[in-house]
Design a protein around this nucleic acid. Structure first.
Lengths: 337, 337
DNA sequence: GCCGACAATGTAACCGGTTTCAGGTAACCG
DNA sequence: CGGTTACCTGAAACCGGTTACATTGTCGGC
């Protein structure tokens, strides 16, 4: 393994000069620079990342906090894969790597400082937080420790942190307006967990849009779900048991919407004739399941790229507190409406 | 930021002793050890990972090679999320972290050495390769460079590398036998890309099982697909255009199977009465799409845990070449058969 | 009472870079 | 021709750990 001293010796310069070739190339003369670069390529020299990190305290790595909730074994993010692809691509375009941080599953004590510890131990430059749905104290510790952070779908801010989210309220409004246009008057909703940011916001948007259309929200027409399929099914069952059963339901998550569709079908209802459904997320199944789930689509890669941009801005950029990014949503009309 | 010298000074011992407390605790006296640990907790001392890596050349990090194929923007692994969860959990139980390595998307030259470079630069202890479907030369460079590697669904082996795969041939055989039991005699298959390991093996298993059942494989009853939905659709169209149309199709991937179902339905065929379909993978949609896709299920978390085990065995274990892991598959019968 | 073994700790070199500061050379100016 | 100045390079301290080797002290055996 070639080291910098080896390379310096061979090319007859000092280690300082070699170091400069890789860090501030403009200060070393064209001639020596080229000679060193050629030789470096020849002997296969690569600057050692650990040494560099040790000296500079910058690792060019950001942590990925994605806590696979131990209380909920089947926990899945609706479109983790798309986010990850976009995030990784955008980060590596800036020379940043992504380190997956261990969550609850990690060995060692858990005093709520586990992410902070990991960040300090590895000299991470920042962190991306993919919401686990709850305000994990360990996550909050991260932003309190002034680690540059960008959270997805979790509302955190401060001098060194910001968040990316879809226009949840606006998306919900899109859904409602669409249903109203289709002639529905009795519109219910199955929400996400209301302690989560998207869960809460989509309900806010729903209510506002309903009011905007001059419609009343009937008793029992708001049922809190859990973003999972079975939860959606159960919630729909409750709606269908009502005396003034709604003719349309805005379901705040596609997975729940699929469950809701099943519940409706199990109750012998035809979709969309007897009951219309609009989901949120636009996950893969939405297009596949007959008759096709109308839904509010999120800009999935947008989460990843926006997160990368925001993080880079905080790392390289000035001191002005970063602005949250709100990604626009779009309505996708399929067969359920 | 407390350093080891600071901690040493405060507790009145040498840095060597402090270091030993964290690395070989048994050699330092109970009394001093406790005193140092207490003080460490008090001042919040954490060993610096970079310094440690620099000195020991072990980083306790493994690279994740997951090349999001730039030639195929929509490239998705059928169950990346499940693998990732299991992998991360299993690795962190051994104190290992996962670093996502940049692929084609990275800046800099691409001479096929990009992963090797990344590994050397960060002193990675090993790598997990999530197959991109092709034998990427950059991946092969990794195993040639004697980096401890474990590949998923990609057959690589050598003194420092091994792979994890499902029993693809066996799974295909399960599917065929199931169809035979249902009374089918004219069984066709839509394969994955035959240059991929799972694509090839599933075809092998298919052929063997057919022969084992004493059945002939008719001309044109093997159509190569691409693991994507549209490819499955197109392949099914070709099968349905045949004179001796099959009564059952083994589709070597669920995503393709969904496409195939659509093609069949578009052609006015009833499933499973006019044509039966068995998929492979057991992705989420399989259970959701009516009438429910019968399929060969893979042990998804198994990939992650097995990969972690294999890697740990190579890192800590002896020099005996690691054994590949073949995960059993199971048949899940739903409505398409 | 001396010696060897052993347990606990310290000293200092080393891992492979970065960076401050200073030195040398050549060009330029008055 | 002396003095700036700009440009390029080198010497050496430093980042925060690990570890080979040396040292000290205790104790048991003979």
């Amino acid at each position: 393994m070639a080291t910098i001293r080896e390379l310096a010796r061979r090319s007859g310069v000092s280690v300082a000069t070699v170091s400069r070739v890789f860090n501030t190339p403009e200060v070393v003369s064209q001639h020596t620079r080229q000679r060193i670069l050629d030789l470096a390529a020849e002997i296969g020299y690569l600057p050692n990342g650990s040494a560099r990190t040790l000296a500079t305290k910058k690792s060019n790595m950001v942590g990925l906090v994605w806590d696979t909730d131990h209380r909920r074994p089947g926990w899945r993010h609706p479109f983790l894969q798309e986010i990850l692809v976009a995030l990784k691509t955008a980060l590596s375009a800036h020379g940043l790597n992504l380190l997956m941080l261990a969550g609850h599953d990690a060995a060692g004590p858990d005093d709520g400082q586990r992410y902070v510890r990991a960040v300090r131990q590895h000299n991470l430059d920042g962190a991306v937080i993919i919401d686990n749905g709850t305000r994990d104290p360990a996550v909050l510790a991260l932003v309190e420790a002034q680690v540059p952070c960008v959270a997805l779908d979790l509302r955190v801010d401060g001098p060194t942190s910001t968040y990316i989210t879809s226009d949840n309220a606006g998306g919900a409004a899109l859904a409602v307006r669409h249903l109203v246009e289709r002639g529905h008057r009795r519109i219910a909703t199955i929400t996400g967990p209301l302690r989560t940011w998207p869960g809460a916001e989509r309900l806010v948007g729903f209510r506002a849009a309903l009011a905007g259309a001059g419609l009343q929200l009937a008793d029992g027409h708001v049922v809190e779900g859990d973003f999972y399929l079975d939860g959606g099914h159960a919630a729909m069952d409750r709606l269908l048991a009502l005396d003034d059963r709604p003719t349309a339901v805005f379901v705040a998550g596609d997975e729940m919407a699929v469950g809701a569709m099943r519940a409706a079908q199990a109750a012998g209802l035809r979709i969309p004739d007897d009951i219309a459904i609009v989901g949120f997320d636009d996950i893969e199944v939405a297009a596949l399941i007959p008759p096709g789930l109308s839904t509010v689509a999120q800009n999935k890669p947008g989460f990843g790229t926006a997160a990368a941009e925001a993080l880079v801005a905080m790392l390289h950029g000035g001191d002005d507190p970063p602005k949250p990014t709100v990604l626009p949503t779009t309505l996708v009309v399929r067969g359920t409406t």
